[in-house]
């Protein structure tokens, strides 16, 4: 399968005044379409930076990041945003729902940004998604009326509503208890299977990692040496561990 995300010798330095932080020190990685990839590593290992680069919210200092065939360093800020809107979905550690909008409106938001759908089409799509994430009866509630797990389900629905090729999730279970976290991962996995959406998520929870079709371990801005790649995910790339 063709790689939907492809990183070549990616280096990312942050210039914090006098100190230079080398967040990523040369990463090469290919993620095939339909992967359920976990990026693992301790805090400060650079996994969030890696996710940001794949998520097109940041561009590499050197090397190239290709997302769905676009070299992100060659895109303008505006084009990157377009790419995020149409190709990527995001799930955040703290859910990041818009507090003043209802569940329905939160999920609808990316569709409104995209435009092109009628009210009926939007409503149908959102209702289907809500049924899938099991929140049909909460459609008009506000985020603060929901539990953490429910909120994250809304976030999942929001990430998927625009039918993106890739969904990025940054520690999606970190703020949830283990049972709820498990449910979210199960939901993500189910959607991954049904719709073939590529999921890339960071976590440091081994139980979550266990669900991944592949695991990439990051340490000190590099892919960890010990990672194998028995299933051949990511082709020749090192550090990808499959289950």
């Amino acid at each position: 399968m063709a790689a939907i995300v492809s990183l070549r010798d990616v280096v990312k330095d942050y210039d914090l005044g006098k100190v230079q932080v080398h967040a990523l020190r040369g990463i090469t990685l290919d993620v095939p379409q339909g992967e359920f990839l976990s990026i693992a590593g301790p805090s400060g290992s650079g996994k969030t930076t890696l996710l940001n680069l794949i998520g097109c919210v940041d561009t590499p200092t050197s090397g190239s990041v290709e997302v769905a065939g676009h070299d992100t360093s060659k895109l303008s800020e505006r084009q990157l945003t377009e790419l995020r809107l149409h190709t990527l979905g995001f799930i955040f550690q703290s859910f990041n729902l818009v507090q003043v909008l209802s569940v329905f409106q939160n999920i609808e938001f990316p569709l409104l940004l995209q435009g092109g759908l009628t009210v009926g089409e939007r409503t149908k799509r959102i209702e289907e998604l809500l049924a899938q994430v099991g929140l049909s009866e909460h459609i008009h509630k506000r985020p603060n009326e929901l539990s953490g797990g429910q909120r994250q389900r809304v976030a999942v629905a929001r990430a998927l509503v625009s039918r993106p090729k890739i969904v990025l999730a940054d520690e999606p279970t970190a703020n949830l208890d283990s049972v709820t976290g498990q449910n979210i991962i199960d939901l993500m996995k189910e959607l991954n299977h049904k719709q073939g959406t590529t999921f890339i998520f960071s976590t440091h929870d081994p139980k979550v990692m266990a669900h991944a079709s592949a695991v990439v371990k990051v340490a000190d801005g590099k892919l960890a040496e010990n990672g194998g790649n028995p299933s051949g995910v990511g082709g020749a790339a090192a550090g990808v561990e499959a289950h």
Binding site: E82, L85, G89, L113
Partner: peptide
Amino acid sequence: REIGTLRAIGAQK
């Protein structure tokens, strides 16, 4: 964070 989120999910400046 809210504004960052909106930007991340595709809202232009």
